[in-house]
């Protein structure tokens, strides 16, 4: 798309500025500063910084979210001892640590996603706030090649913590993905999102994100989300990028079914180019056997511009 836009500009059919991808070509250290376009050539790193939000709201309904009483039952795996079990995506010893409480950032911007089928609501995936009303996740969490969109089936609980839901829940107004996933079914393009019927991101905050053409090998990676073996609790594990290509990142963070859609993020200092704070590098999507790595679609320039356009 960007190449096509550049060709349009070459043809003199559009101006150089509008030839860039949708918006957000060069964003400041804080996205609250607004989008600033730049006519300078794209190179290096571009992104948008994380925003820590305002904290726990006294009334989530002020943000359009629904209150969820403590003890609300989401069907899922229950472990009386909290012990984990061996799965293919725990690489070596299980290094996961519980996040408790979940009212600090970025735990509160990490979203438990449920899916309701035949009247039974169950843990489904993880997502991450990327704007006041936008959650990003894996493409397979919103669209299935065999059955289509999960329209009307998903509910979003930012910062869920076991049986408590400090930020309530929201539903989706629009489910989003890209044709690389919905048409081609490419694992490299397995990312999507949901525009919510609430603006809870104003209090939970949201993750940042950036793309770079430089190698990311060795960059620290953190995944926090809702693994299916932990009773709707949020768990975290850190590692680093072990391998990468232009469309995918590979890492050894310990994950389990339910972690799909988590942000694969790194922490960047204030003033870092493109993004500072909690900066997403990829959408976690896949686990594989020992001897290889877990993986997810990498945030590229065109993908960054695409998801910024969903805000």
């Amino acid at each position: 798309m960007v190449l096509a836009s550049a060709l349009l500009a070459t043809l003199g059919l559009v101006s150089p500025v509008s030839a860039g991808a949708s918006k957000g070509v060069e964003l400041g250290a804080s996205d609250t500063e607004g989008v600033t376009t730049s006519a300078t050539p794209l190179r290096g790193t571009r992104g948008v910084s994380s925003y820590e939000g305002t904290g726990v709201p006294s009334d989530v309904t002020a943000y359009g979210a629904q209150r969820v009483p403590a003890g609300h039952r989401i069907e899922g795996y229950s472990s009386p001892t909290g012990d984990d079990f061996g799965t293919q995506s725990i690489i070596g010893a299980d290094g996961r640590v519980r996040v408790d409480p979940t009212t600090s950032f970025p735990a509160r911007a990490t979203v438990l996603i449920t899916r309701t089928v035949s009247g039974v609501e169950r843990l489904h995936c993880t997502g991450w706030m990327f704007g006041a009303s936008l959650v990003l996740t894996a493409g397979h969490c919103v669209f299935n090649q065999s059955t289509g969109w999960y329209t009307g089936q998903l509910r979003f609980y930012p910062g869920a913590n076991g049986t408590t839901y400090p930020y309530g829940s929201c539903t989706a107004a629009t489910l989003r993905s890209n044709t690389g996933w919905t048409v081609d079914g490419s694992p490299d393009a397995d990312y999507g999102g949901a525009s919510l019927n609430c603006s809870i991101g104003n209090t939970t905050g949201w993750y940042g994100a950036y793309w770079t053409t430089a190698s990311l090998n060795g960059t620290s990676t953190t995944i926090q989300g809702y693994p299916g073996d932990k009773s709707q609790q949020q768990w975290i594990h850190s590692d680093q990028v072990r391998a990468s290509n232009s469309l995918r990142l590979y890492y050894d963070n310990d994950t389990v079914g339910g972690n799909s859609g988590s942000s694969v993020h790194t922490v960047r200092a204030d003033g870092s180019s493109g993004c500072s704070g909690r900066c997403s590098l990829a959408f976690h999507a896949y686990g594989v056997g020992s001897g290889t790595h877990n993986s997810g679609p990498r945030i590229t320039e065109s993908r960054f511009n695409l998801v910024i356009g969903w805000r």
């Binding site: 069907e75 795996y77 169950r122 894996a138 397979h140 079914g257 339910g258 686990g287 056997g289």
Partner: peptide, 25 residues
């Protein structure tokens, strides 16, 4: 009800498996 069902690829190299939480009804 509520059992977590997990696939593991036996192919070589292993196929990537989506990390959905699939629970029995």
């Amino acid at each position: 009800d509520g059992a977590l069902v997990q696939p593991k690829s036996l192919d070589s190299p292993p196929l990537p498996v989506p990390e959905l939480a699939v629970l029995s009804g």
